[in-house]
Simulated assay, not measured.
Amino acid sequence: MTTVASDTGAGTRTGAASGAGAGTGVGPLLRGWRERRRLSQLELALRADSSARHISFVETGRSRPSEEMILRLAEHLDVPVRERNALLLAAGYAPRYTESPLDAPELELLREGIARLLEGYEPYPALVVDASYDVVAANKGIQLLLAGLPEHLLTPPLNAMRITLHPEGLAPRIRNLREWRGHLLAQMERQIGLARSEPLRALYEEVAAYPPPVDGVAEPDDREDPEPYPYFALPLRIEHDGRVLSFVSSISTFNTPMDVTVAELAIETLLPADPATVAYLQSLAD
């Protein structure tokens, strides 16, 4: 049965990334985001229908941008919703985006929609995580993969990165752990680059410190003669009940979210990457 956590969303755990740039005030913050996106003042001005002179004045504090200008610049700089609120606050404006607990009444339709989506994806695994990779919803396919893990890893809030890379978690079962671990750590590094979240950085430092794969031990593929992957993307190859299941991960987010909690949710679906995986999961469903 699909479960949707009644905990709050990522908002209360990730923390604002208001330190995107050096200094205080909206000007230095905007400059920090512009430099992170590797845009010149002229390039940003052209995208935002402004002028390089005005962008310069805003960044140096010589001009106070309007609320509309801040949101327009944030849109073209692809600033996360949470940090758009931080920009508005730094300029003396009220936050534009709400931050509702995931169990709030106004998000009931969202919770119901997520539950239907995850249940409809069964027997294939699917889950929803927040910006700190805490699992807020999962279906039976995910529960199948987590069977047999120690209780201390399954105590809420479950964390997808911790469960996957912990030496007592899924890591010993992942046949291509070295590649998958590298993929996940690189993904986290990119997210930290987009939003300087201290909880996310702490999680990264924790999972990156887990023992890396040992040749011939942590990667059972070394005991065989594995063929090159006949896949269209890097698969997750994981042992389950004496079989090797292969999945390709796909991640979706909500389009044009108007709530911080919703903006920080990500739906991850694991698509079977070979006929054997499809046949096995379908047999369980039947």
Results as ranks from 00 to 15, higher is better:
residue 5 A to T: 13
residue 8 T to W: 11
residue 16 A to G: 11
residue 21 G to N: 08
residue 23 G to K: 08
residue 25 G to C: 09
residue 26 V to A: 05
residue 33 W to L: 13
residue 33 W to A: 09
residue 38 R to W: 00
residue 40 S to I: 05
residue 43 E to T: 12
residue 46 L to K: 08
residue 58 V to W: 04
residue 62 R to W: 02
residue 62 R to C: 02
residue 65 P to R: 10
residue 76 H to G: 05
residue 83 E to Y: 01
residue 98 T to Y: 01
residue 100 S to H: 15
residue 103 D to V: 02
residue 110 L to S: 03
residue 120 G to E: 06
residue 121 Y to H: 15
residue 122 E to L: 02
residue 123 P to K: 10
residue 123 P to S: 09
residue 125 P to T: 07
residue 133 Y to K: 03
residue 134 D to W: 00
residue 135 V to Y: 08
residue 143 Q to S: 15
residue 147 A to D: 14
residue 152 H to F: 14
residue 152 H to N: 12
residue 167 P to A: 08
residue 170 L to R: 09
residue 172 P to C: 07
residue 173 R to K: 15
residue 177 L to H: 11
residue 180 W to G: 01
residue 184 L to E: 06
residue 187 Q to G: 14
residue 187 Q to N: 11
residue 188 M to I: 14
residue 191 Q to F: 02
residue 205 E to Q: 13
residue 209 A to Q: 04
residue 211 P to L: 03
residue 213 P to H: 04
residue 216 G to K: 06
residue 222 D to F: 12
residue 223 R to M: 09
residue 223 R to L: 15
residue 234 L to I: 06
residue 243 R to Y: 10
residue 244 V to T: 15
residue 248 V to I: 15
residue 249 S to Y: 00
residue 251 I to W: 00
residue 257 P to N: 11
residue 270 L to V: 01
residue 271 L to D: 00
residue 271 L to N: 09
residue 274 D to P: 09
residue 274 D to R: 08
residue 278 V to L: 04
residue 280 Y to D: 07
